[in-house]
Amino acid sequence: MSSTLLEVKDLQTYFFTDRGTVKAVDGVSFDVEKGETLGIVGESGSGKSVTAASIMQLVPSPPGDIVGGEINFKDENLLDLKMKRIRKIRGNEISMIFQEPMTSLNPVYTIGEQISEVLRLHQGLNKDEALEKSIDMLEKVGIPSPEERVHEHPHQLSGGMRQRVMIAMALACNPELLIADEPTTALDVTIQAQILELMDELRDEFNTSIILITHNLGVIAEVADKVAVMYGGRIVEQTDTVTLYKDPEHPYTAGLIKSIPKIEGSEGKLKPIKGTVPDPLNFPNGCKFANRCNYAEEKCWAEEPDLEEVKPDHYVRCWRWKELDLKNESEVK
C-alpha cells in the first residue's frame, strides 16, 4: 500500500429542504490506497450512500449540495473540476454499482448495448470492438454463454446475473476506483457470497481500489481491508478490519458487531441496538449516538467529541473510549 488514490477531506454534503437543512454528510474524511478495499458501514440515513454519490457528484441538486471539503482523486480535486472533465472520469476512472440490480439496468436496451455504451464513450471503440469486449467482460464476471447473453435484455436475467452485468459494465473501462453501494443487499445470501468473491477476484486482477458501502458488517469482514463506521453523517470509528472486530472502541461499533446473529452460543435472542437514528433535521448538540448509548453521560449530551487517534490508524469519536472496555462486551455471549 504505497500511493493514495483517493483522499476525501472534510466532505460536507447538505440537503436543503423546506423543513430545514439536512447535514447528510458532515465532515467526513478518509483515504483509499491503490488496490485497497475500504468498507463504509452504517445504518440507513447514516450518510454512507450520500458520501458515495458525492464522490461521483451524483447528488441530486437541488436539494443536495456539496458545501465543503475536498475530494482529491490522483492529483485533482474533483470538486474543482468542470462537468465535462467529471464525465470523463465517471464510468472510466471511477465507476459505480448500485444496490438494486433489478432496476439499475435500462430495461429497453440489451446487455451488450449497455456495456458497449461505456466502451464506445470512453475508449472510442467501434460497435463491433465494443461488443467483443462486452462479451469478454461478461465472461470475466462469470456469465455463462456470454455470446448469447450479450443480446438479451435485462428482464431475461436473474438478480444475481444482473449484478454481474453491472459489475462488468463498471469494470469495462478498467477504472482505478469502484464504488459499490450496497451491491449485495438485494441478493440472496448464496448469490451475495458469489458476488463478493467476484469483486475480490476482480480487484486482484485489475488492481482496482474499492469503496464498499454496506450496512452489513459480515460483508465488510469478508472483503474490506479497512473500515469507516458512519453515524449521523459523521465517521465515528475508522481502522483496519481486524482491529475493528477484535477491538472496537466506539459503543456504536460494538453494538453493530453484537447485533450480528451468531449461531454458536446458548442464547437465541438477537441483540439489536435500542432506539433509532435521531431526526437528521434536528440532530442533538452532543454526541449523536448519545440517545442510544448505554454509556452516555452528561458530557456526551452536551458536546460532540472529535475524532481522536487511539492508536496509529485507529480513530474513534467518543468521549469515553479510554474508560470503556468494549472488547470484552462484544465477545460475551
Partner: peptide
Amino acid sequence: DYVKTARAKGL
C-alpha cells in the same frame, strides 16, 4: 435507477 446508472457511466 437506470437513469442514475447512465449518469454514472459518464454520459
